[in-house]
Design a protein around this nucleic acid. Sequence first.
DNA 1: GGGAGCATGTAACGGGTTACATGATTGG
DNA 2: CCAATCATGTAACCCGTTACATGCTCCC
Lengths: 211, 211
Amino acid sequence: MSAPPDLPATGYAILGMLCFERELTGYDAKKWSDASLGHFYWSPATSHVYRELARLEALGLVAAREATPDEPRTKRIYRITPAGRDAVAAWVTRPTADAVVLKHPAALRVWLGHLVAREQVREIVERHIEQVETRLATIDESLEGAQAIPTDGLPSMELPCAVLRWSRAIHRADLDGARDLLRELGGGTGAAVTSDPTGAASRRRAPPSAG
Amino acid sequence: MSAPPDLPATGYAILGMLCFERELTGYDAKKWSDASLGHFYWSPATSHVYRELARLEALGLVAAREATPDEPRTKRIYRITPAGRDAVAAWVTRPTADAVVLKHPAALRVWLGHLVAREQVREIVERHIEQVETRLATIDESLEGAQAIPTDGLPSMELPCAVLRWSRAIHRADLDGARDLLRELGGGTGAAVTSDPTGAASRRRAPPSAG
DNA sequence: GGGAGCATGTAACGGGTTACATGATTGG
DNA sequence: CCAATCATGTAACCCGTTACATGCTCCC
């Protein structure tokens, strides 16, 4: 097995989608990544999807055809090539040290919550809870959709479903944590200290590396 | 309260660190974000930290001094300005629609696991489990460190600790999900799992037909 | 037939990275 | 005293974005 081309993970993610479907357009890929991929990895911008598909085509990992007469309008429809399939398989097994990235805007704001009133911290958490609830519903929908897909000749949806359940569990933990935090924050509206009034505060050393 | 400057979130994250400490160097900020910020938001590259600090200084949100004679060598030491503190506070309360991004390389690879042998999927999950265990230990260390910090005149570490516990819960859910998945994948190297043997995923809904 | 929104892109920008350069400190 | 590591940046690159342009389709 040869080393896979050194593409960004997003490229392999798009290539990976083409392993599940016989053909996809850029628009299809974007929809799919919004609905599913985005819950455990990333959902690239539409324009990014198109650019990535063009690169994959230049590398011979996907092949494009123009819409045929019975397709209503001009568009490029992509399918994976054998070389593309090999490349994905090689990439999947290539060991990596990449860690999970959890980019959590609400947590970042709460982290700085001492600068604002306690009530505003509660609001941040409450808004976040609503967001996650919506997201969990979306994940459930994707899960139902994936399970309903017939797999005649196409790969089983077993692992995609397992990954969606995995990510659902993670987002549920986020939700539970947010609710716990809201409880901790209590009902009080205590005002925050927004500055160091005297400027004479004593020194604090060394960010947390074990003390 | 005026609108905060339109910086990337990373800029506010760095500015935020300066709300907790009286002074920080770029190197300090990088260490801190590795140890703590990175578990719930992001840990920028070292060079990125320096560039961001330079921009914050140009905007008057931080002020720098050169190392004084009793500091051993030449370096820039930053402290937040009142304008910087105001900017962070305004940014914290500014409502945002940004969703959590969970960039999970192991999940992405498992998602494509049908392309490789079942045993290799198990290996991916096992390696991931080790990674997360290490990470959880790091989070615990940061938590202990943060709790041990004296807060004389400086902001309380209550919210940073709460956020660390929150992110710890999320990463624990990741770990639990990985272990469940490993169990689902079974000990064999062959047959696909078609049922839900452990019950761990029993929250899965019935499969109707949906988009 | 015209507006709303679907679908497919292109161009330019900026955020974030890797690779590199350099001095200061520590320790074998 | 030399090597390793700490520490501080700079430069170039590329991933991913936002903003924009354009044609098609549906439907009122």
